[in-house]
Design a protein around this nucleic acid. Structure first.
Lengths: 206, 206
DNA sequence: AAGATATATTGAACACTGTTCACGAAATTG
DNA sequence: CAATTTCGTGAACAGTGTTCAATATATCTT
């Protein structure tokens, strides 16, 4: 039996995550404050800490949603039935471009994934790390037709390398820290790197 | 003529940068506070703001040092005199590994490069952006023997892509956000990606 | 249904942050 | 050496995340 108090607790929990997500998406993680959150959600300041141990934990919940959203957009890049190398290669390019587009269209939520709890040295909770792993699984499955003979652990390593490389291109491209990168060039950079690496992988296992 | 006041000003400026650098290197950017800095350097709290408009500007000065330090370690990877493709390729791998090792040995200073002023939406000052560009120049020069026919702007784009990819691998590998990556695997990931991309570049311009 | 007990909510208070600014000290100038 | 400009100071301001005694609410017992 769920008591009345527990119900309200759950509702408050959802309201907090919803509002935090909206705030981060609209104005970035830095604009998320406990007081602003409480005011917008219509609860007391301390009420937040009845539901979450701290703000970081709340942000992890938002990040969890963002990750499943990324996963959704990636799933929409359907893998081709044919086993042809070129098709598998272009599938990987599609996955990478889907990732890049999500980052461009949801910049604040996306960068929150990598800003949250950066300083606090606390590791992310295990269940959230697992969500990250699911993202890698998509890449591993896309990579498998490219190198069917490759052992699983090797495939995972290559998936990590490929994801990290694409992620780096997106990150430096979007945050324009070094130099402004036009959107079209960003996609070209990604295409070049993904094509090159997949070709390198095939060469290793033929 | 440099007045006595200007001298002290310069000395304080250096002391502040030195101390900030030490603090960041030892405990990370998040542990750098105005009050702690003032106490350690032996000046008043407000004195910091006579020399720097805000703490972010001070951190940019630290980052400037870090960048030249990275440049130094990269210069030590000497380009081979021979024009052979394999040699040029391994030179690029060496550059990337040098970057990775610097990041591993100076993690706090290195990540400060990408954390500073992330939220403040203020763009980095122009002279600091130029320092970043100098890093890319090294890569462009390393890439040139691989694709001598390539036009300059294309070479710059490829340099950005390659740097970003390596940077992404280092970042996700070091901060262990997704999954812990052992050091040896990190170097292997870098080697694979750099070799693949350089090979892809040569293929494009032959 | 009413009283007793446990639980949840609250917002003032705490300890911290970066930044400012009137004031007194020091250095430069006439 | 006096006048003036410049500089160093730290208390004060406005903000942050987090806590906790008191209050209000919900649950349990009779």
């Amino acid at each position: 039996m769920t008591t009345k108090a527990q119900e309200r607790r759950q509702k408050l929990r959802m309201d907090l995550i919803d509002t935090a997500e909206r705030t981060i998406a609209a104005q970035g993680l830095a604009s998320l404050t406990a007081r602003g959150l409480a005011k917008e959600v219509g609860c007391a300041l301390g009420a937040i800490y009845n539901v979450f141990p701290d703000l970081d934990t709340l942000v992890v919940s938002v990040n969890s949603r963002t990750l499943t959203a990324i996963d959704r957009t990636m799933v929409q890049s359907v893998a081709p039935p044919s086993g042809k190398f070129e098709a598998a290669q272009e599938f990987m390019v599609g996955l990478a471009l889907a990732y890049a587009r999500f980052a461009q269209e949801n910049t604040n939520l996306w960068s929150c994934l990598f800003e949250a709890g950066m300083q606090s040295s606390e590791p992310q909770p295990e269940w959230h790390q697992d969500e990250h792993l699911r993202l890698f699984e998509r890449i591993v499955e896309g990579l498998r037709p490219i190198a069917p003979q490759a052992p699983d652990d090797r495939l995972w390593m290559l998936a990590r390398a490929l994801f990290s490389a694409v992620h780096g291109i997106v990150q430096l491209g979007i945050q324009e820290r070094f130099v402004a990168v036009p959107e079209s060039e960003l996609e070209e950079q990604i295409t070049i790197v993904v094509r090159s690496v997949t070709r390198g992988i095939r060469k290793e296992f033929d």
